[in-house]
């Protein structure tokens, strides 16, 4: 077992945060009895993934990847993960909208958004 390297931890800070957020979101979805909170957890989870991708593409000191022919030789950050995450945000948005619509119709049926109360009413 290697000893804990503080500088390694600091250099990889965004990755640790994203893993932490991902686990938190996953836990919220699985354990919270309130359906709205479950959807919030889902969003936390997906935001963690976005953070991870953006952190991967980041180059410290890099400029935004908008190529200007007049100024050559500039260091740009990697634009590909940002493009991927644009797609990811769209997917996450549609899942959230769909889930909320379903919760609304469940609320119309049962009058509650609590899983434990839903189970009792069945």
């Amino acid at each position: 077992m290697r000893e804990l390297d503080v500088f390694m931890l600091l250099a990889n800070f965004p990755y640790f945060v994203s893993i932490l957020l991902f686990s938190m979101g996953c836990l919220i979805v699985l354990t919270q009895p309130n359906l709205i909170k479950k959807v919030i957890g889902l969003n936390v989870m997906e935001t963690a993934i976005f953070l991870f991708f953006i952190a991967v593409g980041n180059i410290s000191g890099g400029a935004p990847p908008i190529v200007n022919p007049a100024t050559g030789g500039v260091l740009y950050v990697n634009p590909l993960p940002q493009a991927l995450i644009l797609t990811g945000i769209v997917v996450s948005f549609s899942v959230t909208a769909f889930a909320l619509a379903m919760i609304v119709s469940l609320y119309r049926f049962y009058g509650t958004v609590h899983v434990s109360e839903l189970m009792k009413m069945r």
């Binding site: 889902l42 997906e46 993934i49 991708f53 990811g88 889930a99 379903m102 049926f109």
Partner: peptide
């Protein structure tokens, strides 16, 4: 009622699943 409930359950679990998959894709890209 049953269809809505089952569908929501499926959506939540499937989204967790695809979260794991896209994270794995991120690792592979890294």
């Amino acid at each position: 009622k049953e269809a809505t409930e089952a569908s929501l359950k499926y959506l939540l679990l499937a989204t967790i699943g695809s979260g794991f998959i896209v994270f794995a894709i991120g690792f592979l890209y890294t």
